[in-house]
Simulated scan of single mutants.
Amino acid sequence: MAKGDPASDMTPMAHLFIYKVFFLKVKCIGADLYAAIDQAIKDGVDIISMSITNDHNATFYQDSISSGSMVAIQHGIIPVAVAKNDGRPIMGTLSHSAPWVLTVGASTTNRKITSIVELGDGTTFLGESAYQPTNLNSNYKW
Rank of each mutant, 00 (worst) to 15 (best):
D121S: 11
Q74S: 15
R88A: 11
I18H: 13
A98D: 11
N110W: 09
I78Y: 04
M50S: 08
N54D: 08
P89H: 09
I37S: 03
G44T: 04
L33I: 12
D55I: 05
I73P: 03
H15Y: 11
T109G: 10
K27T: 06
Y19G: 05
P6G: 07
T93P: 00
T114C: 13
N54K: 03
T11S: 10
I116H: 08
F125N: 05
H15L: 11
R111K: 08
C28H: 01
M50T: 08
T108N: 11
Q74A: 15
L24M: 11
I78F: 02
P99W: 04
G68T: 02
V82Y: 05
K27N: 09
G120Y: 00
C28N: 06
E118L: 11
H75V: 00
I113F: 13
S69L: 05
T108D: 10
K112T: 15
Y19K: 14
G44R: 09
Q62K: 02
G68E: 04
S8T: 10
I78G: 00
K42V: 11
I41S: 11
N54I: 02
A35Y: 14
N110Y: 12
Y131S: 10
K25A: 01
M10W: 03
P12I: 06
M70E: 15
Y61E: 15
G87E: 05
I52D: 00
R111E: 13
P79E: 09
S95M: 13
T123A: 14
P6I: 08
D121N: 15
I65P: 01
V45H: 02
T93F: 07
I48Q: 03
L126S: 14
L102M: 10
N110S: 13
T103I: 06
F60W: 10
S51T: 06
I18D: 13
I48M: 15
T93I: 02
D32Y: 12
A81N: 03
F125T: 10
Y19C: 01
D32E: 13
V45D: 03
F60P: 06
S51G: 14
G76S: 04
V117L: 12
F22C: 03
I48A: 14
S66L: 02
A106N: 07
A36T: 10
S49I: 09
D38S: 08
C28E: 14
W100I: 00
S49M: 09
D63T: 06
A106E: 07
L24I: 06
L94F: 15
F22M: 02
I73Y: 05
L24E: 12
Q39I: 04
G120T: 07
S67L: 15
K25E: 09
D63Q: 06
F23M: 04
Y131A: 14
S69W: 01
G68I: 05
F22N: 01
S69K: 08
V26K: 10
K27W: 14
K27Q: 14
N110L: 06
E128C: 14
S67I: 15
H75S: 02
V104N: 04
A40N: 07
T59Y: 03
V71D: 12
T59P: 01
V101F: 09
S97T: 05
